[in-house]
Design a protein around this nucleic acid. Structure first.
Lengths: 259, 259
DNA sequence: ATTGTATACACTGCATACAATAAGCTTCTC
DNA sequence: GAGAAGCTTATTGTATGCAGTGTATACAAT
């Protein structure tokens, strides 16, 4: 998916319309939304590259490289990098670029400890506050999940939506922001658990139970189930680490971008 | 406290050293640390202005106004504003500047619900993980607090340190970040509870109990006490709101900055 | 008087030039 | 050959100009 074909930058004096057209082309207007700023584009693009493993964790990024890659000036890139740094996806190295953050097994455990705190609370609040529309949306996702248990590419966004709906139905912006802060680092953990069919089925079953509890307004049960859901996710991840290579031999991995 | 006496902006062509001097003056080198970037200065300065009420919540800020106020160009200001936006202190209005976020009583309740979730967990983790040095630091703060119960200006930073030490001793970066995200919006709630002598005494007593629990490695008790501490804080705030003016009549409040 | 339209203004978004900074390398001296 | 001083390079920090966007205002038409 050619990452934004754009020659290089018209040395600095082609027809003025040229750059305008380029800019318009760059902004994939998000279906009725307003045109996104280039900084947002950059942010999403970098995030996606990290998520898809096109940029390895531990890789070192610089403003100019990214600007060249995405065909924009350093200004929006700076903005995007700052944002990703505050999200914790990038680690700023004062005058030496930024590193893509790496999380080791201990970081992962810390992350899940916090998720185990927050997500059950969200499920409980959802059981109290969710409206019929929210519950219908959850059911719709369950139905879709059911027929896509072996299609991770479809399952992953569904899973995301599922958790987003619960979060939103919890009606607590601070809780949402706290969980979002944790979620944003999940891409650093590597492949999704849902690539594993067994885990996908387990997760789907748990989702169903959680929605049942929410529909019965049983906050306590939703809370317990959500906690178990998080724990199952951690178990799967730990098992994967135990099996696979320790994957801790990257030193400073060269820039994977550009020629 | 004259907000940085500085005429206006040298119309655009005084001696070039002038702006350099301004820049140097602005960077109060933080005792051995490296010189901070102007963006950091701006960030702190704006945050402080909000905290001290020199900029009202609901006020509308623009890049040029802030740049003129702080005597720097728009670039570092932009960066600072973006940071404050991602912290939630400012609300971005796409092409129209930014508003200083306002929190109503319901937002406050949501915030405290999350604090009630996170801070007890931190206290419990601290009870498990704190080293002797951490406990000594906590004791030192208790001692200082004890003699400054009627000096809010001194008490507020002490309180901050107290919570920071507990957070750090919890040894969980995700928990720390989640709580930091919540704390960063506390300035929006208005004056500190510690201005109230009665509350200051209550908080100090609770701090002592919490440290006792931590020292005895009694995680469960630390957790319960921390929860009670958060609840007490919410009670004081709610009582204050009940007494005072509802303070909800600002519509879009004019720019309070500049003449 | 009311509505529609053009124009002016205020502000941000982005690009680019330039300055500053820190690390690495080279070279010179002893 | 070792160490220090200075140069080089890589990278970020800052200023500023210009273009685009959204709002308000004034003016014309009904």
């Amino acid at each position: 998916m050619a990452p934004r074909s754009r020659s290089k930058r018209p040395a600095r004096s082609s027809s003025p319309d040229d750059s305008a057209l380029q800019r318009i082309a760059a902004r994939s207007v998000p279906a009725g939304g307003n045109a996104r700023s280039l900084a947002e584009v950059a942010c999403d693009e970098i995030r996606r590259a990290i998520r898809e493993g096109r940029v390895a964790t531990g890789a070192h990024l610089t403003e100019v490289d990214l600007a060249a890659w995405l065909g924009m000036s350093r200004t929006p890139i700076r903005e995007a990098m700052r944002r990703l740094q505050s999200e914790g996806l990038l680690l700023n190295q004062p005058f030496r670029g930024a590193l893509v953050m790496r999380l080791d097994a201990d970081d992962m455990r810390q992350m899940f400890a916090v998720r185990e705190l927050l997500e059950p609370a969200a499920a409980a609040a959802c059981a109290v506050n969710a409206g019929p529309a929210d519950i219908a949306a959850l059911r719709a996702i369950l139905d879709e999940e059911a027929v896509k248990l072996d299609n991770p590419a479809a399952l992953i966004p569904l899973n995301r939506q599922f958790h987003d709906i619960i979060l939103e139905s919890a009606r607590n912006q601070f809780l949402s922001k706290a969980i979002a802060g944790v979620y944003s680092l999940i891409p650093l953990l590597g492949d999704s658990n849902l690539l594993n069919g067994r885990h996908a089925r387990e997760a789907h079953a748990q989702h169903q139970e959680i929605v049942d509890a929410i529909e019965h307004r049983d906050a306590a049960r939703a809370e317990v189930l959500a906690r178990e859901h998080v724990r199952a996710s951690l178990r799967t991840r730990l098992a994967r680490i135990a099996d696979n290579v320790p994957q801790d031999f990257i030193k400073k991995t060269t820039k994977t971008r550009k020629k």
